[in-house]
Simulated scan of single mutants.
Amino acid sequence: MAEGNISLIMEFMLLGFSDLPNLQGFLFGLFLIIYTGILIGNGLIIVITKVEPVLQTPMYFFLRNFSFLEICYTSVILPRILVNLWTQKINISFTACAAQFCAFFVMAITENFLLTVMAYDRYVAICKPLNYPLIMNHRVCFQLVFGSWTIGIPVMIGQTYHVFSLPFCDSNKLNHVFCDIPPLLKLACSDTSVIEFSVYVVAVLFVMIPFLLIIRSYVKIISTILKLPSNTGKYKAFSTCSSHLIVVILFFGSATITYSRPKSNNSGRTDKILSLLYTIVTPMFNPMIYSLRNKDIIDALKKLLQAKW
Results as ranks from 00 to 15, higher is better:
Y60E: 02
I289Q: 08
I71L: 02
M156K: 07
Q24I: 05
H162E: 14
W86R: 07
I273Y: 09
L32T: 10
S267D: 15
C179Y: 02
V247H: 09
A125F: 11
W309G: 04
G29L: 12
K50W: 13
N91P: 01
F68D: 02
I6E: 01
R122H: 04
L8A: 12
F142W: 15
V145K: 10
V177C: 07
V247R: 05
M10L: 14
I46N: 05
K303R: 15
Y200M: 10
Y123V: 01
Y120H: 04
E70Y: 10
V124F: 02
K220I: 01
T36E: 03
S267Q: 11
F104G: 01
D180L: 00
P182K: 00
E196T: 07
Q88T: 11
N294E: 13
L144Q: 10
T87H: 01
P182N: 04
F197I: 03
L301F: 15
K236T: 09
A125K: 08
F94D: 01
M156S: 02
R122P: 03
V199G: 07
W149A: 11
M156E: 04
C97Q: 07
L245I: 09
N172K: 11
D180V: 03
S275C: 02
K263E: 13
N265V: 13
I221A: 11
K234P: 06
L276Q: 00
G253D: 07
E11D: 15
L213C: 13
E111P: 04
T240F: 06
L205Y: 05
I77H: 02
V281E: 04
K89T: 12
C241Y: 01
V219D: 11
I81N: 03
T256A: 09
T240Q: 15
P79Y: 07
I298R: 15
N137H: 07
R139I: 08
V281I: 15
K236N: 13
F61I: 12
I92A: 03
G25H: 10
C241E: 01
D296R: 14
A99T: 10
V248W: 05
M284N: 09
T270A: 13
N65S: 13
S217H: 05
T110F: 10
V199I: 12
I214V: 05
H162L: 10
I6M: 06
K50G: 05
T232A: 02
I297F: 01
M13L: 01
G233Y: 07
I195C: 05
L39G: 00
S243V: 06
A307F: 12
E111Q: 15
Q24G: 04
